[in-house]
């Protein structure tokens, strides 16, 4: 049993990660954390650096779940990345964070979350940042 979570260092990302860890503990599932960047910006703070990687690793170890971190620095966009990993790992659940966006913003920028929701082959759990609840 595998859960895939899309993670970026932001409030939404943290909310998704926290829930994913809970969920993994409850279901006794393996957790695959996906952090990726399309690599189209010279500087991309959504990609975790070595320090954040180690913190993430420590946090997951502490939670006691069986985990795997998938960090991709170049190539495809986040939605494709999550979907691809989910398929390859035969995930039972995908957890993602949602950002508040206006309709126009979504029209222009596209939405990672929307594409994951529409195209995923398994249930998707989506969360807003905890202080938006």
């Amino acid at each position: 049993m595998t859960i895939v979570v899309g993670y970026i260092p932001s409030e939404e990302g943290e909310a998704a990660l926290a829930t994913a860890i809970d969920e993994a503990q409850r279901r006794n599932a393996r957790l695959v954390v996906v952090n990726s960047s399309k690599g189209d910006q010279l500087v991309d703070d959504r990609l975790i650096d070595a320090k954040q990687y180690h913190e993430l690793e420590a946090r997951l170890t502490q939670s006691g779940v069986d985990f795997w971190i998938e960090r991709k620095s170049q190539g495809i966009d986040a939605a494709d990345q999550i979907l691809q990993v989910a398929e390859a790992q035969r995930a039972q659940l995908i957890v993602i964070g949602l950002r508040k966006r206006t309709a126009m913003g979504k029209f222009l920028m596209g939405s990672v979350a929307q594409r994951v929701l529409l195209q995923a082959g398994c249930p998707v759990l989506s969360l807003k940042a905890s202080n938006d609840w």
Binding site: K38, D77, F107, L108, M109, G110
Partner: peptide, 11 residues
């Protein structure tokens, strides 16, 4: 060059 946000790019 690798942009995939079609709508935004067109705008």
């Amino acid at each position: 060059l690798g942009s995939r946000r079609w709508v935004l790019t067109l705008v």
